[in-house]
């Protein structure tokens, strides 16, 4: 077997998967997006920009996605970093394993069940009831952007923690000692050594969480109660409820394009940051 055929064989399963599950559906959606709605639902082939002209009708979904996804990503980063730092740098080897398992534990149950728990916690008989006990009345949490944000951060935190943990864990601790030895106070050591060397982990975590958030629909559906909805919810609605496939396709194509643009800009930024330090560039 030549090296060439071997390489092709290695790539074949993933390549086939990629073609069947991604390229073909995307092409279909792309073609549908220029079609028209059939009277009984589904799509009539055509070439019209009518669906795209209608996009502003779903502006709220795009706005919610494009605000809550970045805010959710950033919040998850701010919460995950200290946790990952503690796990990788400060905790004793014994505790490290226990804590890492605790970070994964939520994954053992479905996000659906965990979100229901949040419905209760954020609902009228949960946290607001507790607040009333201490005299703070009239707080509404469930079905607000805040509730969705809480759900998002909770659900995606482990995905942010792990890449950062890995980059901090493989950081040579003697570099921190060297920095201190050269007169840097702990805070300056963090800024000049720890943080720059964990950028690959931060970049990976943010990318992972952000991309997944852009397509999120379950958490807004459960915790946003139809008031706070993402593009994902609009798609579910258009494809499954109103069966307006053509319009749904246009929304989907737009989401993909927005995602591609955001990710490209993000990559550029990260790589520019890493240009002077090859070892931290991610691509």
């Amino acid at each position: 077997m030549t090296r060439r055929t071997r390489n092709w064989l290695l790539l074949a399963p993933a390549g086939t998967w990629f073609l069947v599950m991604l390229i073909i559906p995307l092409t279909v959606v792309f073609i549908f997006s220029f079609g028209e709605r059939a009277p009984a639902g589904g799509v009539v082939p055509a070439f019209t920009f009518e669906q795209y002209a209608n996009l502003p009708a779903r502006w709220a979904a795009f706005k919610n996605t494009m605000t809550l996804a970045p805010i959710g990503t950033l919040s998850a980063l701010l919460i995950a970093y200290p946790l990952a730092y503690y796990l990788a740098v400060k905790s004793s080897p014994k505790w490290k394993t226990i804590l890492l398992v605790l970070v994964i534990v939520p994954f053992w149950t479905s996000i659906l069940i965990r979100s229901y728990a949040w419905i209760f916690l954020l609902g009228g008989r949960g946290i607001p009831a507790l607040l009333e006990l201490v005299g703070i009345e009239g707080v509404r949490l469930i079905n607000t952007p805040f509730a969705v944000l809480v759900g998002i951060i909770y659900g995606y935190l482990p995905l942010m923690v792990f890449p950062i943990y890995v980059s901090l864990d493989k950081l040579d601790k003697r570099l921190l000692e060297a920095s201190s030895d050269l007169g840097a106070k702990p805070w300056r050591t963090f800024l000049q050594i720890t943080l720059p060397l964990s950028i690959p982990g931060i970049a990976t975590g943010c990318m992972l969480v952000f991309i997944l958030l852009m397509g999120e629909y379950l958490i807004p559906a459960l915790l946003g109660g139809g008031k706070v909805f993402f593009v994902g919810n609009a798609l579910v609605d258009l494809f499954l409820q109103s069966r307006n496939w053509a319009y749904g396709s246009a929304v989907a194509v737009t989401l993909v394009v927005v995602m591609l643009i955001t990710v490209t800009v993000y990559m550029r930024l990260i790589n520019r940051l890493g240009a002077s330090r090859e070892d931290v560039s991610i691509m």
């Binding site: 003697r174 060297a178 030895d181 007169g183 050594i193 720059p196 330090r277």
Partner: peptide, 28 residues
């Protein structure tokens, strides 16, 4: 350590990988 007028050459050097030679040397 950061308050002591003492410097150390580490066993595996512990140079900062994200800095140039000059940035490493000028760190202190």
């Amino acid at each position: 350590a950061h308050h002591r007028p003492v410097n150390m050459v580490f066993q595996q050097y512990a140079l900062f990988p994200h800095m140039t030679v000059a940035q490493n040397i000028g760190y202190g």
